[in-house]
């Protein structure tokens, strides 16, 4: 598995897309800091970008890599290697290379602008951590989609739909249901619903750090327990891990019956 990981990783490190992605983040980091010169504001803007863009890029990258390396995968499948190891290896290769692009692409400009001396370093680290999680989650989801869909165009379609659903539509439905059932106690429901969407979950994790002042403005006791103590962060991280593990587990299941 480590060998596959290594090769996928090297392969991706040399691919044009990794550079595009890396340069995009580099550019974004510099532009943000140049325009604002205010680390805190840059961190907030960055959060909006990370929770929307990382999943999108993760899904597209995952699906694209799967379909593009299909023949190569077949070559690997004919080698004496366990199936699941091939795919987990590839998965880790993609996720790691995306994460590396993210960390370096954003890390470099922020370092140059004196992040290490700034108080924003914790916010920034959290942002990068959450971004990495999102990479791992969405590449896993993308691999699930690709494994279940033979047709490349359909696979891409589903991947984009999944992203659109989790990034926008889910929240829309969520808000509508909250407004509709206004009279009922909804705090448990809303926390619960947040857990079912990795994007929302990541957003909440960052909000716990950046906007704790506003989150504590809400009256519900459940909210207060969740946001006001360490429970919130702890639970969120736990569920984020589940969001990586569960798609991987499904991937393994799927691989047992999959024909190539």
């Amino acid at each position: 598995m480590l060998k596959i990981l290594k090769y996928s990783f090297y392969d991706l490190l040399r691919s044009r897309w990794s550079y595009v992605y890396f340069i995009f983040y580099l550019f974004l980091g510099f532009v943000l800091l140049f325009l604002n010169n205010d680390m805190n504001k840059a961190v907030i803007t960055l959060m909006n970008i990370i929770i929307v863009l990382t999943p999108l890029i993760g899904t597209i990258f995952g699906v694209m890599y799967y379909y593009n390396s299909k023949e190569f995968t077949e070559l690997l499948l004919a080698q004496p290697i366990k199936r699941s190891k091939i795919f987990i290896g590839q998965y880790l290769g993609i996720s790691l290379s995306l994460t590396l692009s993210l960390v370096l692409g954003l890390g470099i400009p922020f370092m140059i602008y004196g992040l290490s001396k700034s108080t924003a370093i914790f916010d920034f680290s959290l942002l990068i951590l959450v971004g990495s999680f999102l990479n791992f989650i969405f590449v896993a989801l993308a691999y699930n989609i690709a494994l279940s869909t033979e047709n490349k165009i359909k696979g891409f379609g589903y991947a984009i739909l999944l992203w659109l659903f989790l990034a926008v539509i889910y929240d829309g439905l969520f808000m509508i249901s909250l407004i509709t059932f206004n009279e009922y106690p909804l705090d448990k429901f809303s926390l619960f619903a947040t857990m079912f969407n990795p994007i929302d979950l990541s957003r909440i994790l960052i909000l716990l750090k950046l906007d704790i002042s506003v989150l504590l403005g809400y009256t519900g006791a459940v909210f207060k327990d969740f946001f006001g103590t360490k429970t919130g962060s702890f639970l969120s991280f736990l569920v984020l891990c589940l969001w990586v593990i569960l798609p991987l587990a499904r991937m393994k299941m799927k691989l047992r019956k999959k024909d190539f």
Binding site: K3, D11, L12, R14, E71, L75, A78, Q79
Partner: peptide, 26 residues
């Protein structure tokens, strides 16, 4: 096994691919 369509990772060089497959088989 010789697969039908030889489509390899575009970013690897020939020798790297050969070494890789060697590496994968004991």
């Amino acid at each position: 096994y010789l697969p039908q369509i030889a489509n390899f990772p575009a970013n690897l060089s020939v020798i790297e691919l050969i070494n890789m497959v060697k590496n994968l088989r004991p």
